[in-house]
Design a binder for these strands. Structure first.
Lengths: 349, 349
DNA sequence: CACGAGGTGGAGAGCGCTCTCCGGCGTCGC
DNA sequence: GCGACGCCGGAGAGCGCTCTCCACCTCGTG
């Protein structure tokens, strides 16, 4: 075929393609980016030249001039482990919660040719890294999942004027877009179910109080129970991890041996609670009904967990959508999207 | 302070810093990159100017000339779901296995200022996307985790001359670096333990036969049992998912009601197997001992699972290390690293 | 004291791409 | 039939950075 060595070495460039096709760089660029009309025969010549050279546009060169990268940062932001357990990166990625969020993000971004860059922010240093990363133009924006309430990262991002979208409403209000769930409504779903089943003495294992979502689930549940004529609901605080659900359940049973229904603020803790109940010889749901939240680990439980489903993939996709909108238009209005939970009835309640 | 507006708009550039510091661009670049000596007073002036302008180097411009990006692709490669279940991205990220690998990769890369870009390859199209992504210079190399044996991606990468490191030995030999576990040795550990406990009738639930690791665990186990005088070991095939462990256990018990020990090829299936045994009313480990593999889901089981630990984080970090070596030196020799498993004794065996 | 070696800063040429202009040509309207 | 306008390809100026030269200055040495 063409004996015209494209270049002495390295990957073929626009220039090489242009020369081979007998047109200018600008024309090749136009064909590739589909901008402005190009005569059909020339288009074809260009496509042939691209195929012949195996040309692939250089991303760095392109983003140098376009100022966009086709990448977004997916950052998990939390407090560094004070009580030196496993390192943050080990814990966070093992959480099915994160996996589903990542899945949702990838599902939305992939068809659009955009890829998420995984980042962790668990210290002042690493938070600055995230900000620098974005300021360097390494990514067009950030999707932030905070594991704790008072995360400083969102504010840093806002102050730096960087496009970002949060998972869940921040603890203190700042002008930033986020996607969240109607937690109170979800908790009410659980309350309704428990009451409908005939539970009379109901308790709850909540998430950490410094997480707004945990507060909302707790108060939403209490409120709904009050509406059903149960003004007092015993509650113990967990940390969203299985072990705390197990411990919480033991405590609950010890202090209130006669409870017949429990709302657990997430599935991971519910899993632990189920373990505790089994160890205590209580049958679920006969002796005590259990409802979880998230629908993340529900099917691997015994019995399968009735739970309030959070449409995580949809929420994550929505985050990505909002972020792209912010990145494309700096004046895009700060938006919060609140999604509706649904009750998934399995066997535990 | 300086009333010298750096630029009319946008982020400050090297030029701005240079002007403010009263030196040339080259000097600023030298200070930033720590290359060649620069007089201390000038260094300080430059640093002051950087601080004053809030300068951050533009990554695209830099990688345009250096030809390196400071990013690597972390690709999960598998077969698209023929039997239209959940989309690939939902399944894969929910797997704790992936989470731990990601954690190990991030743990190694993060201190080095490198970030992984999450990619999925589950079709010819998306595999090409990965290759293009690398050829575009969007990342310096790829870490590939294949979920199935006959994954075409590694070969594509090798043929394109792109730096890549695999998780686990590929099904058919190709010249590519990989990190793997001594699966046979791990399986032998399980066999030894079962025999030492006094198990006489032992069976196994294996992984899918088209995955080399699954084959190795199976044959390694059979071989070790043969060495202990048990030439025949009943085996059923699973797919590494909990449900298949549960089904497999039911089948095993049905066909061999008297077995008193089981080696399950991964923890997820072992979790399912434990569920099955509970439903069947068999006590673990009194009636039947169970050993898993991976140490991924072991602590959330009841009873806690005795398992063969695979040092996933270390293996993932090693992959990252190898990849960086390949990226830095194109002539770096193809290397395979095989890590040693250990037996973690908990309660199930 | 002259000359060379070594160290240090500056100038400038790109890296590969996009995009604004500009010019040439064909077409339409009056 | 002639000017005006629209359409489309080319030329060229950067985007922000690195890095090779080169010039200069300071020592050290014969």
């Amino acid at each position: 075929m063409s004996t015209d060595l494209p270049h002495t070495s390295g990957a073929p460039t626009l220039e090489d393609v242009a020369r081979l096709a007998g047109v200018s760089r600008a024309t090749v660029s136009r064909v590739i980016n589909g901008i402005r009309n190009v005569a059909p025969d020339i288009q074809e010549a260009v496509h042939r030249a691209i195929a012949a050279t195996g040309y692939v546009p250089n991303r760095a060169a392109r983003s140098l001039v376009t100022r966009r990268t086709g990448a977004v940062a997916l950052v998990v932001s939390g407090a560094g482990d004070a009580e030196g357990g496993e390192p943050f990166e080990s814990r966070v990625f093992a959480d099915p919660f994160f996996g589903r969020v990542a899945g949702g993000v990838v599902g939305y971004l992939r068809p659009r040719g955009i890829h998420p860059v995984l980042m962790l922010a668990d210290s002042a240093q690493t938070r600055d890294d995230v900000v620098s990363f974005l300021r360097q133009g390494s990514a067009d924006g950030a999707l932030v999942v905070s594991t704790h309430g008072e995360d400083p990262l969102p504010k840093l991002l806002v102050d730096a004027g960087l496009p970002a979208v949060l998972w869940a409403r921040p603890a203190r209000p700042i002008p930033i877009s986020y996607v969240d769930l109607a937690h109170r409504a979800g908790a009410a779903l659980a309350a309704d179910r428990l009451v409908a089943r005939g539970c009379r003495r109901v308790a709850t294992i909540s998430g950490p109080f410094d997480v707004p979502a945990a507060q909302d689930r707790l108060s939403g549940f209490q409120e709904a129970m009050a509406g059903h004529g149960h003004p007092y609901v015993p509650a113990v605080e967990g940390d969203f991890m299985p072990a705390s659900g197990e411990a919480g359940m033991h405590r609950l049973i010890k202090e209130h041996p006669d409870i017949d229904g429990v709302f657990v603020a997430n599935d991971l803790m519910a899993q632990g609670a189920l373990l505790a109940l089994r160890d205590l010889g209580r049958r679920v749901p006969e002796d005590i009904a259990v409802i979880g939240f998230d629908d993340s680990a529900a099917v691997t439980c015994r019995p399968p967990l009735t739970t309030v489903r959070q449409p995580m993939e949809d929420m994550a996709a929505e985050m990505a959508r909002l972020l792209l909108a912010h990145a494309a238009d700096p004046d895009f209005q700060v938006t919060s999207v609140i999604m509706r939970p649904t009750l998934v009835v399995r066997e535990s309640a």
